[in-house]
Design a binder for these strands. Structure first.
Lengths: 243, 243
DNA sequence: CAGTGGTCTAGACCACTGA
DNA sequence: CAGTGGTCTAGACCACTGA
């Protein structure tokens, strides 16, 4: 009864079990009461209980099996929520000035036989956009981007004075799927020169491919100065699905 | 009617709208039919429609506002699902042999005044576990770990012959929250020596802090040889909540 | 075969909020 | 104030699966 009364009943039930699980009061493998039992405890209908427990099952906190019952799930290791930062916003948040500086922008045919480029271009050509993300006038990240000209016809008239290409694309070509690969590389001489550091400096390399439905939109390779940048991933057992 | 009949109705409704959204047939900002309208189309009760659309709202594909209606959401940029790899499993998947090689294992008091260590140790001491992840006898990753002795008393008797410390901890001390920080660093001379490479080589640095409820469990810093390793993050608009 | 969760109905009252 | 989604009920039938 110390619970805020504004909360819907199904959320209160969900939250109650969630807390008992997170506190370790209910350990992995433990059996939860049946829906019938929970109904009686909360004095509500079965649908309300089902809604609460289904949410926990979707979130991966519990496993439900017919006849057997409901059990606290083993924690899953393999997925975390990764915050993908908006570079411009993040730079400004730190109180620095942000700027995008273009290195190259041109349209060209896809390389012959190169699967990756051909896949991206479809039956059209490629738009190549390379540039630097600057923080307080200093290079923070160098970015090499390829965009399918067919998929994004409006790009020809795009101006990156206000928004860098990534932000522009997000605003104009909503994507549905993306794949990001993260690794560490040493900057090549050319890359280091653009970044204003010595060749061989360690960089965080982010490669991202983006789709809209089945259609490939863009491929980008970003090299961040390793010390100046990092990414944070958080995990609460699929909390994102709950709140 | 070409739909597999085995699918529950609410999932079919959800899937129908999901596909129309992902295909771009319904664009961000577009309004979906009201629950009343969907009821009539599918010839079902409102609860069934509500279950389908609520799932899409939870997944972030649609926004629902009273009186105004239901709308296709703008794609969110800021969260992706990061696959956190189980190093041992991943090495074996590549057909290589996996081994964990201990470098150091000892119990010591927390450093004085060091907030991070003190926080982790609580009122107890720290267990320090450093080691190498080996693939086919070659070092792939060096790992520096601190564990709260209070939080994990069973660790004293743990044997890492079969499972490396990370896997052991996961099996024995289910965590509820973790925070991962990813960056690129150059290996120090000492680190490079353990890894069997030249000093200054670029490494992917993964730092993770793990909680169980409010209690800190472990802190780990892993240095992967950048070329030998990468991480993949995928995004479908919170698909994880759906499937 | 009996207990459990999965699904669905046909209603109801309400809070919110845009017209 | 009227339309919309949020929540909840008191039932029902069913599929699954462990005893």
């Amino acid at each position: 009864m110390t619970v805020p009364p504004g909360l819907p009943l199904h959320e209160r039930i969900r939250s109650d079990f969630e807390q008992r699980i997170l506190a370790g009061d209910l350990a992995p493998g433990d059996r939860l009461p049946t829906e019938q039992a929970v109904m009686q405890v909360y004095g509500c209908s079965r649908m309300t209980v089902n809604k609460a427990l289904s949410a926990l099952a979707t979130a991966g906190l519990i496993d439900r099996r017919k006849k057997a019952g409901t059990f606290v799930a083993r924690p899953r290791v393999h997925s975390m929520v990764l915050d993908v930062p908006d570079i411009a916003a993040q730079v400004r948040e730190r109180g620095q000035s942000y700027a995008y500086r273009s290195i190259r922008r041109r349209t060209r045919p896809a390389g012959e036989g190169e699967d990756e480029e051909a896949l991206l271009a479809g039956k059209g050509s490629l738009i190549e956009i390379d540039g630097l993300h600057m923080a307080d006038g200093k290079a923070l990240c160098i970015e090499f981007r390829l965009v399918s000209a067919l998929a994004v016809p409006a790009l020809a008239e795009a101006d990156f004075a206000t928004d860098p290409p990534g932000t522009w694309l997000l605003r104009h070509v909503p994507w549905t799927e993306a794949e990001t690969r993260i690794s560490a590389v040493a900057a090549t001489r050319q890359e280091a020169e653009w970044l204003g550091v010595a060749a061989g400096v360690s960089c965080l390399c982010v490669e991202r491919r983006t789709w809209r439905g089945a259609e490939r939109i863009t491929t980008v390779r970003q090299l961040f100065l390793g010390e100046a940048y990092d990414m944070v991933a958080r995990f609460g057992p699929a909390q994102s699905a709950l709140s």
